[in-house]
Design a protein around this nucleic acid. Structure first.
Lengths: 236, 236
DNA sequence: TCAAAAGTGTTCGATATACACCCATGC
DNA sequence: GCATGGGTGTATATCGAACACTTTTGA
């Protein structure tokens, strides 16, 4: 068999695009590419007896301390030249203590409250939130992964709107919810129509509690009612 | 490093769920698991310098002779026990002339006219269409892949309705189109409302030509107008 | 009393649903 | 002339889009 016809024998990694919402814009969690000034998506080679879903869960848990974070696999990136840059090749070898060679990655999407305290491991890796409008150039194909993850968010929240509430505080105002929709769909929503639409949704419930200490009329808080959500889903 | 902590080093395959439509039901293209009586999804290990998209294109082209078949990656299957059945392990070793060990697969979805003449390679592999309601037990996790592919079709055709017309003859009747929708969405559509809806779609155009040799009033043929379709998509 | 954001209602057009009858053709 | 499937229209409900003013609160 000619070299070009050898069967692929590859290391497999997962990379996670973890999004947070700062009240205005989506942010993505980047970590330092250790030993360099560059930043990258969190990710890791996976272990022999692991599947990619658990590997992604492991990486997320290491960074955020959340054990059961929801995540969604959205794409395999396997271009032969995705890990051909000499810097990247050398970095892989140093990080994993061996030559890595052919490397394919399974990309995951996850959502996280942006003010959540990250783990010590995250601090060591200088994890930080970066607005999606201002992403740096990243190693491997991480810029492409981040881009495709952004598109994927829309599809995910359409098929499972409960995901949205992983980006918001437990109690949130209508304005915050609307800002989130605007950040995801990259368009404006009319306030009046938006309120009407939300009012029709049984699993978003208005609380009696209102904002305090605001320099204008205080807004009501709302919360996500998971029980009502599950009931609604079941009946569909 | 303990054995359980070894980094995964794996062979990578692609598996294709190729759907056809027999006028009544979706069918999926199965091939013989060579040397056995079992049937499986078409697939193959991929080569070292290939990415998964081209590998899937290669496998599809080998079977159907279509060079530019549209296909959609939808999921990586990587459970450690997906290729642990002793029969499957032995079959892999025999087929690929080596022990294969850890194997992950990237699953693809594709659509094909069911009356298309398949290639000589397909005939050698006893390729045949199998109604999705009547799938046999298949090796590896191919049953699960087929199931998830079925769900994926709906999402694909919603985001890219042009895909539907890869399942229909070039000229098709309204009844055929409706039957296809019914097969995909597993529900009935009211004939009158369906016709109205289709009539509003600019890229489905009615031809003057009608059926002949039918024992009742002849139906008009319709065709898919790709130019109108692309124009519509661009303007969105 | 002013600034700033909250909150609310009506109208209109488009779309989805429900439903029943006449038409063309081959036998 | 009848059986078979083709083809059409109307009424209603729902949803999304457009659009402007009053209310509350703190400064």
């Amino acid at each position: 068999m000619e070299p070009s016809q050898e069967y692929m024998y590859a290391h497999v990694s997962i990379d996670c695009a973890i999004f947070g919402f700062d009240g205005n814009e989506l942010n993505i969690l980047l970590i330092e590419k250790e030993g360099t000034a560059a930043q990258k998506l969190p990710g890791s080679l996976i272990y022999q007896m692991e599947d990619t879903d658990s590997a992604a869960g492991r990486v997320l848990c290491e960074l955020t301390g959340i054990r059961k974070m929801s995540l969604r696999q959205f794409r395999c990136f396997s271009s032969p030249d995705r890990a051909m840059d000499p810097d990247d090749v050398a970095w892989l070898e140093k990080t994993y203590g061996r030559p890595v060679g052919r490397l394919i990655t399974i990309a995951y999407l996850s959502l996280c409250r942006i003010n959540r305290t990250l783990s010590a491991a995250a601090r060591r890796k200088a994890a930080h939130w970066c607005p999606v409008s201002d992403l740096p150039a990243m190693p491997f194909d991480h810029n492409r992964i981040a881009e495709e993850a952004l598109c994927e968010i829309r599809q995910w929240t359409e098929s499972e709107p409960a995901m949205l509430f992983e980006l918001l505080p437990v109690k949130f105002t209508m304005a915050e919810l609307r800002a989130l929709y605007e950040a995801i769909y990259l368009r404006r929503f009319d306030i009046r129509n938006f309120c009407k639409k939300i009012a029709r949704i049984p699993y978003i419930v208005r609380l009696d509690e209102k904002q305090t200490d605001v320099a204008h009329r205080a807004a009501h808080y709302y919360k996500f009612d998971r029980i009502a959500y599950n009931q609604l889903r079941q009946s569909m």
